[in-house]
Every structure is written in structure tokens, then in C-alpha cells.
Simulated assay, not measured.
Amino acid sequence: MGITKVEQLFTVINQSATLLQEELQTSYLEAVGFTGDNLFEGQVMQEDILHNEVLCKRIEKEYSSINLNDLSKEEIRKGFQLAVLKGMKEATQAHHHMTPDAVSLFIGYLVNKLVGKKDNLTILDPAIGTGNLLTAVMNHIPNKEVQAFGVEVDDILVKLAFIQANLQEHHIELFKKDALQDLFVDPVDLVVCDLPVGYYPNDIGAKKFGLHSEEGHSFAHYLFIEQSVYYTKPGGKLVFLIPNSLFEGEQAAKLHEFIKKHAAIIGMLQLPLTMFKKEQHAKSILILQKQGPEVKLPKQALLAELPSFSNMKAMEGMVQRIDQWFATEDLN
């Protein structure tokens, strides 16, 4: 078997990033950012700090071995993602993680069903990270006019999201800030988010949320849900990757109450436990619809335990079942 376009792109990014990393004494992830910029601009942008003509020529030779115009958006996303994953394995930051590819693709499929025939769409990812989940979703809703927004507090991650958007030619407006502060975004049709799980350190900032904790730090994932609902239009959909323990514990009653008042659970799909090293790290896909005066909610929620993504026959059966649910329920 020959080398795929995805592998070819990864090889170019990896080799050029490794050269930049060694020469600039920087992290591999930052070097991936530099090389992504270079690929987009079609030249080595770091010549003034490299001061090494031979190295620049070597890197340019790497870039000339691939033509991005020959690759689809998905091939570019996957090739870039492989390099980012390598960088994240080498880095030690706990908050640097990426949504598994099979999950991103499955959420893309769900979103395609959720938005239906809508031609114009606004999407928000309040924890965009490297942009992998959001761009995977956007790649699954072609032929639509999409305006996307992403929020990320981490310098390196927001830079990588910017490069992902450029290389795939997606229109994403990025904000480098704390997503739990006021956002300069009008309410959107759709929110997608791999919820950051943990405690929110800003106790004063948390006080404006109904889901803040009376004592100690508040759950960041609860506040992200509340913030997302606030920035969604009535009838808009929200697709979250959540920990299976989201609705457990003493704070959960408040979350239940909040969702009941402002939205409705229209779907809950548990990811296969085999995807996770430990059961306590297992996750599900939660689909909400924001309530409003004219909003028609489904008669029955979509509830399922997903089979292993590698079990093609079982997944085909599950997709048929989900397709049937969407055909029966009029969500648009």
C-alpha cells in the first residue's frame, strides 16, 4: 500500500517542525504552529530569526513536496491533527488534550442531522482548543453558509486553531479569552463543545452563574453548559461531550433544574467504555435544545449506548436507528 495523503502531510509537518524545534529551541507544538503558518503562506516565515539559509532551503524542500490544493479539508485536518497529537504526548500540560477522532466524526454526523436543511448557520465552540472538533463538524456540513466562533484561553492552542481554520479555509472568528466571561458573540444556532472538566478558579466570576457553587470552587463544566445555553438562540441545539458522572453528586440537582427550566435533553449517547483507560473517565454525547415560545421539542429523546466504533456492523445498525429517530422527529 502506498502512503496516504494524510500520512504525507503529517510527514511534511513533522519533519519541518522537528527542524524548527531544534533550531529555535522551542516546543514541538509551537514548531507545529510555525510550520502550519509556513504551509499556509507558502514560504518560511521565520527566516529573520533562523539566520540559516541552508536550513530554510531544507524546510522549503519539505513544503514543496506537497500541494495542499490536492488535499480535502478532512485530509488536512487529520494530517495536522496527527502532528498536534504527537506534540501533546510530549507536552505535560494537563489541559492539552484532543477529542478522539472517531468521536469528532460521529458528532459531525449528528450535527449534520440536527441542522437539517438550514442553509445559514452560526456555530460556537466555547472551548475550541486546537479547533479539531469544530473543524471536523464543519467538514460534515458542506454546502452551508457557516459562521463559526471559537473561544480559547491558551496561547498555543488558539494559535493552532487559527492555523487549522486557515489551512482548511474555514471562516472561524477566534477569541483568546476566558470563555466564562462575557463573549462578544450574538446567540448562535448551534453550540459544540468537549466540556473542560474540573473546577473554575475564579470564584468571583462564577457568582454571576446560577450554577455556581455556594462553597468553594464551582464546576467549570456546569458553568460552560450555562454559558452555552445563554449564547444559544431559542430552539438552537447544543452538543456536548460530557463525563458520564455529570448528573451525579450533590450539585447535580441544580443542573437538572437549570436544564429543565431553559432547555430539554433531546439525546444522550454513551460512548463505548472500551475507548477509555478507566471507567471513571468515560464520556457521553449530550444533546440539548434551548426552549422558547415557538419551539417544538421531540416527543421522545434519543437514548443509546454506542457500540465500539471499530465494530462496523453494530455501528451501521446504530446509525440506522439514529437516522430513523431523526426521520420520525421533526426538529427543524
Rank of each mutant, 00 (worst) to 15 (best):
G79Q: 04
F106W: 10
V6W: 00
T99Q: 05
W325D: 05
L195V: 05
K118Y: 00
E305Q: 03
L306M: 02
G79E: 02
E74W: 05
L68I: 08
L105M: 07
V153S: 08
D203F: 09
L303N: 11
L273V: 04
L124A: 11
G79M: 03
M315C: 03
L180H: 08
V295H: 01
L71A: 11
V185W: 02
K61M: 05
V6S: 00
E23V: 02
T11C: 05
I49T: 14
I225A: 02
H140R: 06
P100H: 09
T4N: 06
E30D: 13
V115R: 01
Q181G: 15
L124T: 04
F80K: 03
A314C: 03
L288A: 05
A179W: 08
N14H: 13
E214H: 09
G87Y: 05
Q15C: 12
Y28C: 00
D178T: 06
F175Q: 15
G317Y: 02
Y231N: 15
K261P: 07
K233N: 13
L303G: 09
F258K: 06
G2L: 12
S245F: 13
G42V: 02
E173G: 10
K296E: 14
A282C: 10
M268Q: 15
Y200H: 11
F175V: 08
G198D: 04
I156W: 06
K73P: 08
I322Y: 12
Q227V: 07
Q270V: 08
L105Y: 03
K78G: 02
A282K: 08
A17F: 01
F209Q: 07
V239E: 15
L19M: 14
Y231F: 14
H170K: 10
I107M: 13
Q227M: 12
L19F: 12
H95T: 04
E169L: 11
S308R: 10
D125W: 00
D37W: 10
E250S: 04
Y222G: 09
V158N: 00
G87K: 10
I141S: 00
L297Y: 08
A148S: 05
K278G: 05
E7N: 01
F209G: 08
T135E: 01
K86V: 00
F219R: 14
H95S: 13
T11P: 03
F240H: 04
K290L: 14
S228H: 11
K144G: 12
K117E: 07
H281K: 15
V111H: 01
E257Q: 14
H262N: 11
D101F: 06
G2Y: 04
K118Q: 07
G216D: 13
G317K: 15
L195F: 09
L241K: 00
V151I: 05
Q324A: 11
G131I: 09
K159F: 14
Y230A: 14
L190W: 09
F40I: 12
G205Q: 14
T135D: 02
M315I: 04
K296A: 15
V32A: 09
A17E: 02
I66Y: 01
Y231T: 09
D70R: 13
L183Q: 13
Q15K: 15
L55T: 03
E226K: 07
E214P: 15
G108N: 07
E305A: 01
V111G: 09
